[in-house]
Nucleic acid binder design. Structure first.
Length: 856
RNA sequence: GGGCUCGUGGUCUAGUGGUUAUGACACCGCCUUCACACGGCGGAGGUCGAGGGUUCGAAUCCCUCCGAGCCCA
């Protein structure tokens, strides 16, 4: 074995040699199934570090479960549809989606996405994820979006999908609907106009051009000034129609006059009020940003023109009382910077049954638990149903036609799916007899695709089993992906989607801020892999507490890389000593104290690691393994048994132990660092480490007595190292003699080798003088017993004489506290006793349970 | 503005009622000993965000404030 561990070479080698079929999921397997509803990422082309964190966690779980005898399904999906791809494709080819053939545009999007998937797949493979590639799904392909369409049809038939009015955002210049994500906000100045509707009703508005769209006025219910107005009606100037005055808490009494005008629609708050108070819809704006006939004499004017004209007219009527300049945020189109307008249009909705979703969510086990609160808070604050239609192209088509003759809606039958209604006609005529249809041009929200992933991976509409075992995902998409999935699972099969949901945090840059291209703090997984390899990055990913956000730091990656070198060096040492050794039962009988000590500690480690892996606390598990390998096994155990190994004296017991420990440690680490563990495993075992079982605790090796003695030997060794260090001696410098006074069965053979000195153990403590050096009250006992008198008791104990303190170590002692006699018991205190031995010219070192005399 | 989370040596971090607060990185000294200098041994460094409360006892529980972050208005 080479001295240096070459992570990159080893990782490349195993990527080539591994047979990925060992990760394939078999429905017919008799093992218990463990199905993971993995997130399908949006194929942007780069698998970023946030994905890496998420996938590492999934892979730790998948590999751990596999080694524990589960048949694990780790599928990989790609959530393809959406606006960003449309935008990228427009940029790439210099086209506009509305100016070219829909089918052609869709094709360009598909090609673009396929390229991106290819790149991301490569990174996922390089990171060593145990993905079952035979279970890959791609939402833009007909096999998948057929399922999305079936889900639409079924929910429509159950009455869970309906059509209704909802605002869409349009850019009046581009004459197209745009998404919230496409709005930029600009700070600007505008005029707040105080407009008199009647003698006692004055409103303040920044949008006078919308007065003809006014459908109500609102005041805060606690506003004393307007108590008598609520419920009354008032005539709208320039519009001429009458509107009611209503009360609503959301009105800010301190803004303007405290009376606000509600229009359909000025902004998102108007939309809320419109829904909440069931107001009339009064749409005065056309898609091109001009006013329609509902605006009366202003019909045909552009909004900006209408604004001037309306203010002019109002001034002429003496209705404009005041105009003050204020700062505000205006939403503008990201492309042309024109202020956007809200425009009511017919949309498709999914009904949201809040109680049902919460009830379902509570049946799922949430890790960490508090993440459930986020979902509940979100659901409870929802103000309207889920709008699922989008005015876009690259998405799953809504399988619906409208009869050109009678206008009736025809929803596709399941047998007709998949279908694109803009290209295909329905196979039968409308009830009215007409065969002329207009296909639905709107398409489905991308979350309609991705909210059926747990169903899709088990073969729905003929699910092989359900619910699945686990959903791992980030907390940033609880409100979307987790919520929609629970909603859809409930609606489609009346069942929870998964038994458990594990939420991971998001990744920040080294500066503590969210990674973003504009800040320039983005680190790509490839960058890390090129320098330190996948295992090092995986160790960083394991260092996070589940649910909490994680900062990327090179420091952690480097620390991971160092641990790999340490593990490699340890393995190199162990393997060089066991190459010609076969474990034999009789060697167990001959195990010495140090062997039994380390094996016992290892078994306790196994219990601890299992417990934490079950809780998804990979940070705790890895930290414990690292600590064991580095500070127990390498620094102490190996140092203790080197003598036996080099001398050949009692060496088989050490060899048995080295092999036992290495075997367990490698298997414990395999889910987290699959490459280096495989490499080391291959040097002394056959088959892949990834098809082995996870180490089990062997109770017969848990040995408290040996641990006590082993810890003491470790302490003695450390004390002697410190002694040599203080004297300026080399650590391997021989000493004349070391005499250990101890009642424990210290192994003088190992300790002698390790200190390079003769070690003598003696039970007799000749002419030993004892003195209580420290006396620590055990407050856990004293607190409940004496309550507020504890301090007095402690003071009384401190006043005791040396002889009395020594007496208290062995028997109860009566002391006087505030005139009361109190009997103190030895078990209420921790004693630290100094033992001095006279007549010996030697350095005296004391450890917990021994006195060590060093003759040099 | 609402929901959730976090604030611990220089930096990052463990720690949900017990006195002397965990570890890592960085730092300082010593040691190139045959697994490892990406190492070993030793050392220095903290009023646990601020204030108040509960308690015999608070980093830990409660309240208020300050600061940071995420998601949503």
């Amino acid at each position: 074995m080479e001295k240096e561990y070459k992570a990159l070479e080893v990782e490349e080698k195993w990527l080539k040699n591994w047979d990925e079929r060992m990760y394939y999921f078999d429905w017919n397997s008799k093992k218990p199934h463990y199905i993971i509803d993995t997130p399908p990422p949006y194929p942007t082309g780069s698998f970023h570090i946030g994905h890496a964190l998420n996938w590492c966690i999934i892979d730790f779980i998948a590999r751990y479960k596999r080694m524990n005898g589960f048949e694990v399904m780790f599928p990989q999906g790609w959530d393809c549809h959406g606006l960003p791809t449309e935008v990228k494709v427009e940029e790439k080819y210099g086209i506009k989606k509305n100016e070219i053939d829909r089918a052609k545009f869709r094709e360009l999007c598909i090609n673009f996405t396929e390229e991106n998937i290819k790149k991301m797949r490569a990174t996922a493979k390089r990171l060593g994820f145990s993905i079952d590639w035979s279970k890959e799904y791609i939402t833009m392909y007909p096999e998948y979006y057929k399922k999305t369409q079936i889900s639409f049809v079924r929910m429509f038939k159950k009455g869970l999908i309906y059509r209704g009015y909802h605002p869409v955002i349009i850019c009046p210049r581009c004459e197209t609907t745009i998404a919230l994500a496409e709005i930029e906000y600009r700070k600007g100045k505008t005029k707040l106009n105080y407009i008199k509707f009647s003698d006692d009703v004055v409103i303040a508005t920044t949008r006078p051009e919308l007065i003809p769209a006014c459908v109500a006025l609102a005041v805060n219910p606690s506003d004393k000034r307007y108590e008598n107005l609520v419920g009354k009606s008032v005539r709208v100037p320039v519009g001429g129609h009458e509107v009611k005055i209503i009360a609503d808490e959301a009105v800010d009494p301190n803004f303007g006059t405290g009376i606000v005008m509600i229009c359909t629609f000025g902004d998102r708050q108007d939309v809320k009020w419109w829904k909440k108070h069931n107001l009339e819809l009064r749409n005065i704006i056309n898609r091109d940003g001009t006013l329609n006939e509902l605006a009366g004499k202003y019909s045909g004017l552009k909004l900006s023109e209408a604004r001037i004209k309306i203010i002019e007219d109002l001034k002429a009527q003496g209705r404009v009382l005041k105009q003050e300049e204020i700062e505000n945020n205006v939403g503008v189109c990201w492309r042309c910077k024109t202020p956007v307008e809200i425009f009511p249009a017919e949309q498709w909705f999914v009904k949201v049954d809040k109680e049902k979703v919460i009830e379902m969510a509570k049946k799922i086990r949430w890790v960490p638990e508090y993440m459930l609160d986020r979902l509940i808070a979100w659901v409870e604050s929802m103000e309207w149903d889920w709008v699922i239609s989008r005015q876009r192209i690259f998405a799953t088509p809504i399988p619906v036609w409208y009869c050109k003759n009678c206008g009736k809606i025809m929803v596709a039958e399941e047998e007709w799916l998949p279908v694109d209604p803009t290209k295909q006609k329905p196979p039968r005529n409308c009830e009215c007899g007409s065969g002329e249809f207009e296909g639905e041009k709107d398409v489905l929200d991308t979350w309609m695709d991705s909210s059926i992933t747990p169903l899709a991976i088990v073969g729905w509409p003929e699910p092989k089993e359900y619910p699945v075992s686990l959903r791992p995902q980030g907390h940033d998409i609880i409100r979307t992906w987790a919520f929609y999935t629970i909603l859809r699972s409930s609606a489609l099969v009346n069942e929870i989607p998964w038994k458990e949901i594990v939420i991971n945090g998001i990744v920040f840059g080294e500066d503590g801020r969210k990674m973003s291209k504009s800040i320039g703090n983005v680190i790509s997984p490839e960058e890390v892999i090129e320098k330190y390899g996948a295992d090092a990055l995986r160790q960083w990913a394991a260092s996070g507490v589940i649910g909490e956000d994680l900062i990327f730091t090179w420091r952690d990656v480097v620390a991971g890389s160092r641990f790999q070198q340490k593990l490699w060096s340890v393995a190199r040492f162990v393997l060089s000593h066991i190459s010609d050794y076969e474990p034999k039962e009789e060697d167990i009988e001959r195990l010495r104290i140090a062997d039994r000590w380390i094996i016992s500690k290892l078994n306790k480690l196994i219990a601890f690691v299992r417990e934490n892996m079950e809780k998804y606390r990979f940070d705790e598990a890895l930290k414990a393994i690292k600590g064991f390998v580095w500070y127990e096994f390498a620094d102490n155990y190996i140092e203790l048994v080197k003598g036996r190994l080099y001398s050949g004296l009692e060496s088989n017991s050490a060899k048995f132990t080295l092999r036992y420990v290495l075997d367990r440690v490698i298997r414990l680490l395999a889910p987290i660092i699959p490459f280096i563990t495989e490499e080391i495993w291959s040097k002394f075992e056959k088959d892949s480490v990834h098809v082995q079982s996870y180490p089990e605790v062997e109770e017969k090796f848990i040995d408290e007595d040996a641990e006590k003695v082993g810890e003491e030997m470790k302490e003695i060794l450390s004390a002697i190292r410190k002694f040599k260090h203080d004297r300026g001696l080399a650590l391997n410098a021989p000493l004349k003699k070391i005499i250990v006074f101890s009642l424990l069965d210290i192994d003088t053979l190992d300790l002698g080798f390790a200190t390079n000195s003769e070690v003598e153990l003696t039970r007799e403590l000749p002419e030993m003088k004892e003195e209580v050096r420290k006396l620590k009250p055990k407050f856990q006992i004293l607190g409940p017993m004496f309550k507020d008198r504890v301090k007095e008791i402690v003071r009384a104990v401190e006043r005791l004489s040396t002889a009395e303190k020594l007496k208290l170590t062995k028997e109860p002692l009566i002391v006087t506290v505030d005139g009361d006699k109190v009997e103190l018991k030895p078990e209420w205190f921790d004693f630290e006793i100094a033992r001095t031995v006279e007549g010996v010219e030697a350095e005296r070192i004391e450890t917990q349970n021994s006195v060590v005399l060093v003759l040099c």
